[in-house]
Simulated assay, not measured.
Amino acid sequence: MSQDALQALRPLNALADEDVAVELPVALTVNGVSQAVMLASPTDLQDFALGFGLAEGWFTSRHELLGVEIEPRPEGIELALTVTAACEQRLRARRRTLAGRTGCGLCGLESLAQFGALQPAAVTAPVLAAGALDRALAALPTAQPLNARCGGLHGAAWCRPSGELVLAREDIGRHNALDKLTGALARRDADLRDGFVLMSSRASYELVHKTAMAGIGLLACMSAPSSLAIETARRLRLQLWAFVREGRATRYA
Rank of each mutant, 00 (worst) to 15 (best):
R90N: 08
P120M: 10
L181N: 04
D171S: 14
V123A: 10
G57M: 09
R187M: 12
E69Y: 01
I216G: 08
L81M: 15
D19F: 15
S226C: 02
L39N: 04
M38G: 07
D179H: 14
G215P: 10
L238Y: 08
R248Y: 06
M213D: 01
E78N: 11
L192F: 02
A190K: 01
P141K: 07
E88W: 06
M222G: 05
V208H: 11
A129P: 03
V30A: 14
A203T: 08
L9M: 10
F59R: 09
T232L: 12
A16Y: 04
R92Q: 15
A121F: 03
E164C: 01
P225F: 05
N31T: 04
A36G: 00
F48D: 02
D179C: 15
A99R: 10
N176M: 12
R235E: 14
L181R: 03
G195K: 07
A139I: 07
F243I: 00
P42D: 09
L9K: 08
C221F: 02
L66D: 03
S41R: 04
L228G: 01
L65F: 11
L9N: 08
V26E: 06
V26F: 09
E110C: 06
A21I: 00
S41G: 14
L207F: 10
V123S: 09
T97V: 12
Q35W: 10
R245I: 08
T60E: 15
L137A: 13
D134T: 05
E78C: 12
V166K: 00
A177H: 05
L140G: 00
L137R: 15
G217T: 07
D134P: 06
E206P: 00
A148M: 08
T142C: 03
A121C: 09
A121D: 15
T60Y: 03
P74G: 09
E170M: 04
W158P: 07
V26G: 07
Q239T: 14
K180I: 02
L198Q: 03
E231K: 14
E18F: 05
V68F: 04
Q114K: 05
R92N: 12
A203E: 07
E71N: 11
T232Q: 14
L50E: 06
L118K: 13
V26P: 07
D4T: 12
P141R: 08
M213L: 10
V33Y: 02
L128A: 11
